[in-house]
């Protein structure tokens, strides 16, 4: 459980004072970031990584909308489809791939400000929602 919600994988998240955030790694030698956590640095090839919460806000770097129901290993439930997919630039850290809450191409624009939410993507065997991370437009 993260922020009181069932998630696809709690190891992806960390609770912060501002709310749930993605948990990444930061290289203590060259400051490169990764998501999820990993032990080796893909930039300087070292192995001195530390855990770091990633920014909960960023800007949309690219986007698309998933137009068909993927085959397994996808486990999503139909009432949470279609879904948007994007890459979001988290300032000073990295660009993370994510589901997007918005699925209308007319409302998605590269450069728009977005923030992290936990969004349901499937229902479990008892009908309770399981959440993953997603980004949504920042409301003014």
């Amino acid at each position: 459980m993260i922020a009181g919600k069932t998630t696809v994988d709690d190891a992806l998240f960390v609770e912060t004072a501002e709310g749930p955030a993605l948990l990444g790694s930061r290289c203590t030698d060259c400051a490169a970031h990764t998501f999820p956590r990993q032990g080796g640095c893909p930039r300087c090839t070292g192995s001195a990584m530390e855990d770091v919460p990633l920014s909960r806000t960023g800007t949309l770097w690219s986007w698309t909308v998933q137009g068909f129901r993927p085959k397994p290993p996808y486990t999503g439930t139909e009432n949470y489809e279609p879904y948007g997919v994007g890459y979001v630039e988290l300032p000073g850290q990295l660009i993370v791939e994510t589901r997007l809450v918005e699925t209308d191409p007319a409302k998605l624009e590269i450069g728009m400000a977005v923030e992290l939410v936990l969004a349901p993507f499937r229902d479990d065997e008892f009908g309770w929602p399981v959440h993953t991370f997603a980004f949504v437009a920042v409301t003014a």
Binding site: D9, P36, S62, G86, Y87, R99
Partner: peptide
């Protein structure tokens, strides 16, 4: 990559090409 990536519907090659060309056109 963790199982979550496939389960949440991100392990789809067609998405990547949409995302890459969207950025490229921009």
């Amino acid at each position: 990559i963790g199982a979550w990536y496939g389960e949440t519907g991100l392990m789809v090659t067609t998405q990547f090409f949409g995302l890459k060309i969207q950025r490229y056109l921009h």
